[in-house]
């Protein structure tokens, strides 16, 4: 049994969290946007602790502040109140310890797939030799199934392939936390399934703490150890948390065949339709 499951059980069974197990800690988080009509409070009193090697998905209605929360964790959006800390260190701005996979692939279209990944790798491993850095980038591109497209320009790749590069780029910088903002939202369902498989396969190896926003209930269950349900804004907070107790590594088939799957699914849909 791996540590992720141990800690997960610790969390779910006794309700006790050991501080050393916490990767990401959001406490009393608040986000306010000033508008001409007065302040608009997007998030308020949001508390969430995410454990090491945990995969968390966040689900909620559009505009409830999921993306705001994620970009605050990434350091791309100012915190209006409360705290975010990674391994006890408060977040002060963006940094490569928190890799982000954006909704649009956000590759530099004038660079090759390899150069896009290297852009991050060069930054994070400045002391490695050129060959070593190339190896790291190529390894992850290989992992996402792009071993034949190293030197293709990003603008020549399909949307799905571009997002594969996005995944490779995020994993290649070896972040402590991986933040995914609806990464497969723009893809057709077939490509989405493929990319979910690729993501979970790499994640099973690397066990990087992951926080992923999604609109897709099935995706949320298939990938996550916990599904966080957010209430609708303004003043959005965490409405409910659902533990997903499927064994890892999971396959789509084993998940679909598990009876609990439908209970989980009903729980989430009930919350969203509520």
């Amino acid at each position: 049994m791996n540590t992720a499951q141990q800690s997960n059980q610790t969390y779910s069974e006794n309700g006790i969290v050991y501080p050393s197990n916490i990767m990401l800690d959001l406490s009393n988080l608040k986000k306010v946007y000033p508008t001409p009509k007065g302040d608009y409070v997007v998030l308020e009193d949001l508390n969430l602790q995410i454990l090491k090697e945990e995969f968390v998905t966040i689900i909620g209605h559009s505009g409830c502040g999921k993306t705001t929360m994620l970009s605050m964790i990434a350091g791309l959006n100012e915190i209006s109140g409360g705290n975010i800390s990674v391994l006890g260190n408060p977040v002060k701005g963006p940094g490569p310890d928190r890799g982000v996979i954006f909704q649009s692939p956000s590759l530099m279209p004038w660079m090759s797939a390899l150069d896009n990944v290297l852009l991050g790798v060069n930054q994070v491993f400045p002391d490695a030799t050129k060959a070593q850095r190339q190896d790291v980038a190529k390894y992850y591109l290989h992992k996402v199934g792009l071993e034949d497209a190293f030197h293709k320009k990003a603008s020549e790749l399909s949307q799905g392939m571009q997002q594969r590069v996005g995944i490779a780029r995020a994993f290649a910088i070896k972040p402590k936390v991986l933040l995914l903002d609806e990464p497969f939202g723009m893809l057709d369902s077939l490509t989405r399934g493929e990319l979910q498989d690729i993501l979970i396969e790499i994640w099973n190896k690397e066990k990087i703490t992951a926080v992923m926003i999604t609109h897709d209930v099935d995706e949320a269950i298939f990938l996550a150890d916990r599904v966080i349900m957010m209430t609708s804004g303004p003043k959005a907070k965490i409405g409910d948390i659902l533990n997903i107790d499927f064994e890892r590594p999971r396959t789509r088939k084993s998940v679909l065949e598990n009876d609990d799957y439908y209970t989980y699914r009903k729980h989430l849909i009930d919350f969203l339709e509520h």
Binding site: P94, G95, P96, R98, V100, G120, Q123
Partner: peptide
Amino acid sequence: YINVAKVLK
């Protein structure tokens, strides 16, 4: 692109 540059510092 700017966000990517920021995340990668």
